[in-house]
């Protein structure tokens, strides 16, 4: 009975693997698919049903030169349609972005704060984050001395782990001042990463794989590090403990250290962005193998499909690890930078 069930499941799975392939295999541009997924857009593309795209229109918020502030749904701009002299550019410098046709006939870019796919996903993820943390905080506020169980226990485990192992040990004495920021960053990145791994609607957007997101996070760390820098920290940068000829006629080391202030945060930004972008791209690329091999005959297709499903499962598991790891690394490095900036006297642990 059990075995029969399993055989049924396997056959269904195989059918599921083959069937959509023949529907979608007509012409598939892998680069386009991957880029479409990882880049931002004005609508949320869910799937393609036959010839029809199923997409959620998102609000467009634009300040055009001629008409002032405009708020409307992106469904007005579908398929290159023009709406109130605004349209989505198909090629050129602003390809994929909303442009405005000016009086002279050239395209100019209006001030555009549309809620794009990434912005919408970002907001959803923020809501998820708040919905995870705030009820937990309320539960704790009720003053139950019993240990948290289930989901609360998982969140508490992550939280105390970061608090004890990362923040306390890296920031040092006054870690309590910085722990709310660092915890917020950790859970923000973690939730965004995990939501990005869910392959359908509320998730699936590569939010943390977008440089604007990581830029803001890195800037926050940058400001917090440099605002809380002690005298010893600034002395270490402008007058480090090195042979005098390295800093007097030509301020070689001070210049390097000064650049270092920025590269640290820059590296934070790039690391997070690149890791998530690459992870999503690889998963998508592997999935596309199924559709690419559809034209090579059924046997090859089944083989390739099985292989690519296995690879994709592996990559998704790896991405789960990376989702945590990147959040952890970002928090850890931020904590380390803050700890270095808070050092009372110079540490020789470079």
């Amino acid at each position: 009975m059990l075995r029969k069930n399993h055989i049924g499941k396997i056959i269904t799975l195989l059918l599921m693997l083959i069937l959509p392939v023949h529907i979608f295999a007509q012409d598939l541009n892998v680069k386009e698919v991957v880029l479409e997924h990882i880049s931002d857009s004005y609508h949320w593309h869910i799937t393609k049903w036959g010839e029809r795209d199923i997409r959620i229109p998102l609000p467009v918020v634009v300040k055009s030169k001629q008409n002032g502030w405009q708020v409307f749904l992106s469904s007005h701009l579908e398929h290159g349609a023009e709406y109130r002299s605004l349209r989505i550019a198909q090629e050129g410098r602003y390809a994929g972005k909303i442009v405005e046709r000016s009086h002279t006939g050239t395209d100019i870019r209006p001030i555009d704060i549309s809620i794009t796919k990434n912005a919408a996903a970002l907001m959803i993820n923020c809501m998820v984050l708040l919905l995870v943390i705030l009820p937990l905080a309320r539960w704790y506020k009720r003053g139950s001395m019993r240990p948290a169980k289930g989901f609360r226990g998982v969140v508490e485990m992550l939280l105390t782990d970061i608090q004890e192992e990362v923040i306390k040990s890296c920031v040092g004495e006054d870690y309590k001042r910085y722990s709310p920021y660092l915890l917020t960053v950790f859970f923000f990145i973690l939730v965004n990463n995990l939501m990005g791994l869910i392959p359908f609607f509320p998730g699936g957007a590569t939010v943390t794989g977008n440089i604007a997101i990581t830029l803001v996070l890195a800037l926050c760390t940058f400001f917090i590090v440099n605002i809380s820098g002690t005298r010893a920290y600034w002395k270490e940068i402008f007058w480090p403990d090195i042979p005098i000829w390295l800093k007097v006629p030509v301020p070689l080391m001070p210049a390097l250290e000064f650049i270092g202030i920025f590269t640290k945060s820059f590296a934070l930004m790039i690391r997070l962005f690149a890791n998530n972008l690459a992870g999503h791209s690889v998963i998508l690329g592997l999935l596309c193998l199924i559709f690419l091999s559809a034209t090579m005959g059924t046997v090859v297709n089944i083989g390739m499909s099985t292989l690519s499903v296995i690879f994709t499962c592996f990559m998704t598991l790896l991405e789960l690890l990376i989702a945590y790891l990147q959040a952890y690394i970002f928090t850890l490095l931020s904590a380390v930078f803050i700890g270095m900036a808070r050092a009372k006297h110079q540490a020789h642990a470079h």
Binding site: C126, Y181, L183, C220
Partner: peptide, 29 residues
Amino acid sequence: PDTGLLFWMIFSFGIVFFILVKFGFPVIT
């Protein structure tokens, strides 16, 4: 970095940060 997304990121992250710092993590820790 896209300006619009930058704006929304600063906006949402700011709100989330404010709420969590005020009512979230300090309470829990």
